[in-house]
């Protein structure tokens, strides 16, 4: 039986989540792994928005901020379980994305960029300024998800790092599965069609505004859930999660790896999450090297890392 590209991607991801821990020299790497999965979750949403539908957002960290602060605030003020708080955050993000997206998705290219940028900045400004509620720039604590304790009661005793590694890994697998389903579905086809030629898409009956809005809302939910996972994992959150640099990080991770495919995006996320860890060894040169890597990859491998590597490998075979 020939495996479809969707199953190949899922199997590779599954293997990655399951096998990597065998190579971990210390418990610290579980944390790094978990961070990669959480970032990759948000980036998968960017793949849907930018890779499938061809729309740019420079403000998606705003939704991550909503997801993160929902987990910090809702348990305290509404008495919700943290997991339900994450769901609430995702709902708020979806509604907000729908409201914001309707007017701004008419904009093209850089104009869409500045509008989404504005949205992200508004969110991060509220988080920074409403000190009574959010603690301002100092951030605030986030309650425990409580799932690790439950697992322990069932006899599965994981360290905090291990738990978040596997939990985030499973979340990423689910996120990837949904995104891959979408790719091959009628909606995914419509998104990719309007990416290819908006006019031709309209002529075959695609309601372009509506389909773009769907991609925007879905990607906002991905960002929101990613923010929630990050907050719950760190048990602490600061407004940086909603900052402009985080928005840029998401887009860069997706594009660097190869924005058209989920696997490429995960790869790009891994590289960009690991790079600073590696670069700390370079001390003060960290920023310099990071900027250099971003430029070099985009100049010499414009299709992104993974597609370019795959093409090289295929070229070597032939």
């Amino acid at each position: 039986m020939k495996l479809s590209s969707k199953h190949v991607t899922l199997l590779v991801l599954l293997a990655l989540v399951a096998i990597s821990p065998m190579l971990f020299p210390s418990g610290y790497y579980y944390r790094v792994g978990a961070l990669i999965f959480v970032n990759a979750f948000a980036v998968t949403g960017i793949v849907i928005l930018t890779g499938y539908a061809g729309q740019i957002s420079l403000g998606h960290a705003g939704f991550a901020g909503i997801g993160a602060y929902a987990c910090a605030l809702a348990p305290v003020h509404l008495g919700l379980h943290p997991a339900l708080a994450a769901v609430l955050g995702a709902l708020i993000s979806a509604v907000l994305a729908w409201l914001v997206g309707r007017p701004i998705l008419r904009l093209k290219g850089y104009y869409l960029g500045v509008a989404t940028l504005g949205f992200g900045i508004l969110v991060s400004m509220v988080l920074n300024n409403e000190r009574q509620l959010t603690g301002g720039p100092d951030g605030m604590e986030v309650p425990d998800l409580g799932l690790r304790g439950v697992l322990k009661d069932w006899g599965l005793d994981l360290s905090n790092g291990q738990f978040w590694y596997f939990f985030s890994g499973i979340c990423l697998l689910i996120g990837a599965w949904l995104a891959l389903n979408l790719y091959h579905s009628p909606t995914g086809r419509a998104l990719r069609a309007l990416h290819g030629s908006e006019i031709a898409a309209r002529v075959v009956g695609v309601d372009v505004a509506r389909e773009k809005l769907k991609a925007f809302v879905i990607s906002a939910v991905y960002a929101s859930v990613s923010g929630s996972l990050l907050a719950l994992q760190n048990k602490f959150i600061t407004p940086d999660v909603a900052g402009f640099m985080h928005s840029i990080e998401m887009v860069t991770m997706a594009v660097l790896g190869g924005v058209g495919s989920v696997l490429g995006a995960v790869f790009g996320t891994a590289v960009l999450t690991l790079l600073p860890q590696v670069l700390t060894a370079f001390g003060e040169y960290e920023q310099l090297i990071l900027g250099l890597v971003m430029m070099l990859v985009m100049i010499f491998l414009p299709a992104g890392l993974l597609p370019s590597i795959l093409r090289k490998l295929r070229g070597a075979e032939a």
């Binding site: 086809r189 990719r192 069609a193 990416h195 290819g196 030629s197 898409a201 002529v203 058209g260």
Partner: peptide, 10 residues
């Protein structure tokens, strides 16, 4: 279309 409007990458 006179100038093709194909979804190139599909």
């Amino acid at each position: 279309f006179q100038n093709l409007q194909i979804f190139q990458s599909m």
